[in-house]
Design a protein around this nucleic acid. Structure first.
Lengths: 260, 260
DNA sequence: GTTCGTAAGCGAACAACGTTCGGCTACAGA
DNA sequence: TCTGTAGCCGAACGTTGTTCGCTTACGAAC
């Protein structure tokens, strides 16, 4: 579901330790241990910080999530946060982990296509419940524990439904990119009335010079047609159809496709 | 090709003017006119600034593109840049416009599938020639003149190849998202030896606890298999197959798909 | 009950960022 | 030669993430 921005870019970013170094609990390396305290009387905690981050996120959006603003939300100074979070990047990773953990997996079924659609919808629902989160996933690679669990679950379902390994890996890759990108698009949409905005955009397209942009002009209505949900379902369907077609009729092996 | 992050989020971001206001040259609204000067003896110019931005971008990456760094590159003070560029956002838009203009369109052919693949490859080539640019497209909506031209060209080709309007619009949407996301993935990959990194990542996956992550462990090799080019071609093929399947066998109209 | 160690939290500060403002400078036109 | 102005600059402002040293208040030890 979310390999895409993950598989080739995740590890060294947060000072990933060498494979040998990770043994007992292979938590992602960015997860630093919270500071020990033999005297337990803190007003703060990792959970308090992450909770407050979510509050700020949902009420003011991703760009407004600043360490000072977050500290204000809790009623504490900004520097205090660094006792519980290594830096802002780690904070965001913790937020994303919390979000991914919220996504519930569809029950196992032999039908990988329907399962994947249900999972994708669950992901999109999560993004919708927490506006401001999709923005955080951009330009960032989140290898959080709960995201690993999501990947694991999906791979299990796809494999047990009979998909070849390579296809199982790649379908998650592509679908994850799709859902994340779609959620981002929803978030970035201007806050005002969507109808009005759509009309505005359509009108702008129609105002392009006819000689230079005939297609954009005549397709102005088409480009803004359909509800967000319709477009989401459609894209999902197209991607899954593509993979189904691949299963029925694999391309020429000489083209360099990895063997399944 | 790049509708995705465009169609529903572009306009109000940069203070889009009302449709009626745009008449003769409907340049995107972020493009402010450079300051008039009856005395033409400037060391700087918009082109000089954009050129320098590209140099910084390619040598130090997107995060390092700062106004001060850019000014240093030219040998000028940071504040001087604001005579030629309204702000950093506009600078980035200008950079992106320059990049999109560099992409050459494949010659028209009746085969929309091959045409689209060729266009996607040309886009990816552009991103590869200019490392650091893909990062800039994230979290941003670039409705630049050259990007409009790209959309126009693609729509023309797809329509003349017989694709229904709605499909033509959406295929560009999805393919654009794919290419942009892929390019970003390439950029974010750690600078060191890719082979070594892949081994590292594979090893890390294999070090996950077997009971909890059996699939991730056993698919560790599969997840990192294939060259970047192979994976790019594969994803492209999957997407296009999905659309082809849609053309042959449209889904149930009751499901709310837009009529073509 | 007093002392003490320690960790939680604070305020100030730092560097870097985008951006603005007032002023200097040097040239084109009068 | 004078003057207006365009081009550019340095300093500054308000943010940002982050660090550092200090205060404070509690649990434990005597």
């Amino acid at each position: 579901m979310f390999y895409y921005r993950t598989m080739f870019s995740s590890s060294t970013l947060f000072g990933m330790t060498e494979p040998e170094a990770i043994q007992q609990p292979p938590e992602p390396p960015w997860r630093s241990a919270p500071r020990r305290r033999s005297v337990p009387r803190p007003r703060l905690s990792r959970d308090v910080v992450v909770d407050a981050a979510l509050t700020v996120l949902e009420s003011e959006g991703g760009e407004k999530l600043t360490m000072r603003r977050l500290a204000d939300e809790i009623g504490v100074s900004a520097s205090s946060l660094y006792g519980y979070v290594a830096n802002k990047e780690e904070l965001i990773q913790l937020v994303l982990d919390r979000m991914y953990a919220e996504v519930s997996f569809p029950p196992p079924s032999g039908n990988w296509q329907e399962w994947l659609k249900a999972f994708a919808r669950a992901m999109l629902d999560m993004y919708r419940r927490h506006p401001g989160v999709a923005v955080l996933t951009l330009g960032r690679v989140a290898v959080t524990p709960s995201m690993l669990s999501g990947m694991e679950e999906m791979l299990g379902e796809l494999r047990s439904a009979g998909l070849p390994d390579q296809v199982a890996v790649f379908v998650g890759d592509l679908a994850g990119l799709y859902v994340g990108g779609f959620a981002y698009e929803l978030e970035v949409a201007p806050p005002g009335d969507p109808e009005r905005f759509r009309d505005q955009f359509t009108g702008w397209l129609r105002s392009l010079p006819p000689g230079q942009f005939p297609n954009l002009r005549s397709l102005a209505g088409t480009m803004t047609a359909g509800s967000a949900d319709d477009r989401f379902e459609w894209g999902l369907d197209v991607i899954i159809r593509g993979f189904a077609s691949y299963l029925e009729k694999p391309p020429d092996p000489a083209a360099g496709w990895p063997a399944s």
